[in-house]
Design a protein around this nucleic acid. Structure first.
Lengths: 361, 361
DNA sequence: GAAATCTTGATGTACGTAAATCAGAAATTC
DNA sequence: GAATTTCTGATTTACGTACATCAAGATTTC
């Protein structure tokens, strides 16, 4: 049996009340006594039962999550993970309210942030849009003393307490390394590689492109970046034109959303496809494309990890404990056809048993 | 505030005792009443507070973990994660005793299993050695009604309740796919690829080799498999000889331990190294080799995930709840130089704050 | 030496659930 | 209709911690 507060009291020869005062840093304990108690704690190796402590405190952490709406598969998966966290009771004592705003609408995000401030939550997590009014709203959040975490898409260190997402420059480099190797050395310098982005206005996409370029660094010829604006039909046309014009295209890097259009164009395309197609985010679509050999690799950020990490960080901030950033670094997953995880782990289409949280990683 | 058992009782118009009987599947409740209570649970969206439940149960699950000793970096990382679970109090109520046995010693593993049986734990996890006496001991464990989980290395479905490890055939296929693409198409058929194994007597290694071959399927010429027997010096000589004899070697797949010898040989080697070097398990050594461009890719299984998964499964078995296998599937991570996680996440050389579990993913 | 302050002990309630006990009520059997 | 059996209610204790209150002892202050 693990030692309890009673054991500390016995060991230190003090009362339970005194142990409690020491443990919870309450005043009214002589320095000498405090040392005795702390020695006893160390001696018997006491660790506070957080579950019991939280139960006794019956403290709840009201958090607000702000996500973009729309039909982006990744965002919908993210939303599912947030909803899962909403109903998960596991010693978390977290009460999450979820706000969905129109996608790519900075003003809407800013309004949602201001509305959240009024609710006085213990923390806010937001999928940010890189716009001035959002940054202003973020500064207002911080000014009101509410911890703020950006999710997936960052705003820069000045506007938030923590970023729960991947290092997008590293993701771009990873894509570049894969591209370089998949394309092969022989034709490398003359090999044409295209990049498909949603919009260069989003910070993540810019970072990925920078990383991609730096990893490729002169081994390939980069065509001008195509911007699909997250519109499947437009993206499909762009890619179809691209394939028609460059029959010798060596690779495509799709660094944002818009995979549906890309995949549709590839599926329709006759003749040999480029040697290397690399995309982001494992969804039903990219998964199917991987399995059908339409795509070669998918880089992924685990939405579930990001949500749980955001919650952990917010809780730590709310308690005034510094978050251990190294622990909260989100990994960049690489998936080939061969190492695909089960569908229900990757995206949000399978239900879990009632009241059970997912297997934590 | 979240609804509690009291709210269910009020809503269903029954007593607390009856709610408890329904919740904990105790007998003595009429079918009709049970339905009423379940309807009330669904109606008010009750979810059991697991922290409080575990506290009240004050149940502990004594588990025994049996790991191989030796200086294998991966196994030491695994041991660290087990030790971490030992001191983790978080609502787990798990009491783990850790047994370290000599590596590659089937008899020792069998003895440890029998010794564990005598302790009557609620479950046993073992890094199995694929030997007849181990299988016999495993069967004795099962005969005594103790749930058994194999960790990292399997024994086959007949001898255990669950395997907490990666699909090694899939891992081999993944390595094969990467190899094929890294080597390039032009020289493919004549490209020579070597495989380095610890010993073909271990099941995991055989599975990986099979998967590797199937993914390569005639696109490369496979040299005879080298067996380094986990001896760094011997492995280094093998690789040095290999590099000397085949100056046109296109790739090396190191499918087991012995990476230290491989890396040492590569570091000493003068002249161009093979285009593609792929190894298993992210350790300090493979990490450093990746960063130094001595290795191109590392496949990894997350030891922390495996340990936590094993604990979850053992607990579920102990409670008579069927484990949800899909949730417990361990992923095959691919790491390039560019998407390396922080050092202390990958292997076991950084200490975590006292009493804090790792981020779970 | 009396008053004020600081320190400690003793005790009780609370959190949400588990589990046990005992007493009735209802349904079933003969 | 009496004797069983099955079901349900009421109540209590416990888990490990937090937190508040009151009393009393120890120490300091003037």
């Amino acid at each position: 049996m693990r030692p309890t507060v009673h054991d500390i009291a016995a060991q230190a020869g003090v009362s339970l009340a005194t142990v409690d005062r020491v443990l919870n840093r309450r005043p009214g304990v002589k320095a000498a006594t405090r040392l005795r108690v702390e020695a006893a704690i160390a001696a018997i190796g006491f660790v506070r039962d957080m579950a019991a402590a939280n139960l006794a405190k019956s403290r709840v952490y009201p958090f607000t999550f702000i996500l973009p709406g729309g039909d982006n598969s990744f965002m919908r998966g993210l939303e599912r993970h947030v909803r899962e966290a909403v109903v998960r009771p596991a010693s978390d004592r977290v009460a999450i309210s979820l706000v969905v705003v129109p996608p790519f609408d900075g003003a809407a995000v800013a309004r949602a942030l201001d509305a959240a401030i009024a609710q006085e939550p213990a923390g806010i997590a937001v999928v940010a849009v890189d716009a001035p009014d959002v940054m202003d709203a973020a500064l207002r959040v911080q000014a009101s003393g509410i911890p703020l975490v950006t999710l997936v898409s960052d705003l820069g260190p000045a506007c938030r307490d923590h970023f729960a997402g991947i290092d997008n420059h590293a993701a771009g480099r990873t894509a570049g390394s894969l591209m370089r190797r998949f394309v092969g050395r022989e034709a490398s310098e003359t090999a044409k590689v295209a990049v498909l982005a949603g919009s260069m206005l989003v910070r993540d996409h810019r970072d990925r492109l920078d990383g991609f370029k730096s990893a490729l660094s002169g081994t390939c010829t980069l065509l001008p970046v195509l911007e699909g604006q997250d519109d499947p039909a437009a993206t499909e046309r762009l890619i179809a034109d691209l394939l028609a014009q460059h029959s010798d295209l060596a690779g495509i890097y799709s660094l944002g959303a818009g995979n549906r259009g890309l995949i549709a164009a590839l599926r329709r395309h006759l003749g040999p496809r480029p040697r290397a197609i690399i995309a982001h985010e494992l969804t039903l679509h990219t998964r199917a494309a991987l399995e059908a050999d339409l795509i070669d690799a998918v880089l992924n950020q685990d939405a579930g990890h990001e949500v749980r990490s955001a919650i952990r960080v917010l809780k730590a901030k709310a308690d005034g404990i510094p978050a251990v950033d190294a622990q909260e670094r989100i990994r960049i997953d690489i998936f080939l056809k061969d190492n695909l995880p089960f569908a229900d782990e990757a995206d949000g289409n399978a239900l879990r048993p009632f009241g059970l949280a997912s297997g934590e990683n």
